[in-house]
Design a protein around this nucleic acid. Structure first.
Lengths: 240, 240
DNA sequence: TAACGAATATGACAAAAGTCATACTGGTTC
DNA sequence: GAACCAGTATGACTTTTGTCATATTCGTTA
């Protein structure tokens, strides 16, 4: 929240928000949506900018309008572990708010990103009154927990090679392809991919080279093209 | 739910439940508690018995009255990954219920365990009407998510030795000590400990031997005594 | 009490993954 | 275009961890 592009706008209405149908939050009752509309703060983050920082206190919740965001823990030795990838329609920062704790992770924009900030009090107020929304939020948390538990199991039991293949497919699921239908629609550094997989950067680079050699992917700088998804899926050894 | 000890009892009242003050679920409004009381099914599981199985459909939620339970994923190769340890006052099986999915994990009693089963419809009904309870449930999920994310980061970044030390301390936090003040109050096999840490059984055995040599623990069959918690904490290298 | 099997323990080895050093590449700035 | 830097790539090596084989112990049952 260091950016200067903060606007209490009337331009970006929740009612006409592009994410109205995908975001949990925008499923609140109409009466609350109006309230959100008047209190929310529209904000833009440039690529690389921090939306919030591990250790600081949450004052509200962020609703991503457009763009891409990584959510990461900083390990004891300073190495980051990316725990979620977010896109338009997702909300961030609710975990700490609900647990009434400081942020346990840092959110950074992976590209220019637009977000709506909804103040804590309003968020909590709506949750306490809109049972439907609360139930949706609970489901969302529940799904997130499930995904994280699966990741945990895979991290514990699968070799790096399989996990990397899995992550590439996960990135595809999350952000999809570019217009060409094969290029992953996000630019991540090798280090960031490593921090998603939970391995060393060099290992990631090495394995990506192998994947290229085995004609599963094509590499062009930060562009990653998936040219044999079937083989990649096999490499990931997924069955759930 | 294969046990034959099922009783629609009037004996075990929620109102006088030993876990009334610790369990989230028992914080429901009094009117609902009465309802729960009449619909819940009291059940006993012997050590080693399965409470529910990965892949099957949830028909309700389990409230642990007394005893100890492990919740584990079965990895693709059949190796289990223990994702939670549960005790009296905890509830299990809510995750799948809320996400409207099959169980993604298996719950097994680590010792003789008493549970109350609350039918799905009632559980959902209460959640949809008791905003306070729903909010509590949300917090619970939120905390669980946080813990799991932390585990994920540690699994990705810390060596087995540190993770084992951490798990021993975690077991102590969860189940505490026996009356002697040093023996961990649960019997887990070396394999189970390994499946908590996310490592091979032999590695766990080896490291426990080291911990013993370095006089951090004492081993007596499945009994594990923590004789130098400070040193163990240092070995775990925790700072959060 | 003997005997059995399962769990624990330990050694030897293999495989996986991380680290360090060193190139190479691509994009940026001057 | 030269120079520079960060990111990428690759090789050589070390460390960590897993695997397999084999004792050994423990608790259980006959």
């Amino acid at each position: 929240m260091v950016s200067s592009n903060i606007t209490h706008d009337t331009e970006h209405l929740c009612q006409s928000c592009a994410q109205k149908n995908t975001s949990v939050f925008c499923k609140a009752k109409v009466e609350y949506l109006t309230e959100v509309n008047s209190q929310k703060v529209f904000n833009t983050f440039k690529k690389g900018q921090t939306i919030f920082n591990e250790g600081s206190y949450p004052f509200g919740v962020f609703c991503i309008n457009s763009g891409k965001v990584k959510l990461a823990h900083l390990g004891d030795d300073g190495k980051e572990q990316i725990i979620r990838l977010l896109k338009g329609g997702d909300i961030v920062g609710y975990r700490a708010l609900l647990s009434n704790e400081r942020y346990s992770a840092t959110a950074v924009a992976l590209e220019d990103t637009q977000v709506c900030f909804i103040p804590k009090e309003l968020f909590i107020h709506i949750l306490k009154n809109d049972a439907g929304l609360t139930f949706e939020m609970m489901k969302l948390l529940s799904d997130e927990l499930h995904k994280t538990e699966l990741k945990l199991t895979h991290l514990a039991q699968k070799p790096v090679r399989e996990r990397l293949a899995e992550i590439l497919l996960f990135i595809k699921e999350t952000y999809g392809f570019e217009d060409d239908g094969i290029t992953l629609n996000v630019r991540l550094s090798r280090e960031e991919i490593a921090n998603l997989v939970g391995t060393a950067t060099e290992s990631t680079i090495r394995l990506l080279s192998e994947f290229k050699r085995d004609s599963m992917v094509e590499l062009d700088g930060k562009k990653i093209k998936i040219i044999n998804q079937k083989k990649l899926l096999k490499t990931a050894n997924l069955q759930d």
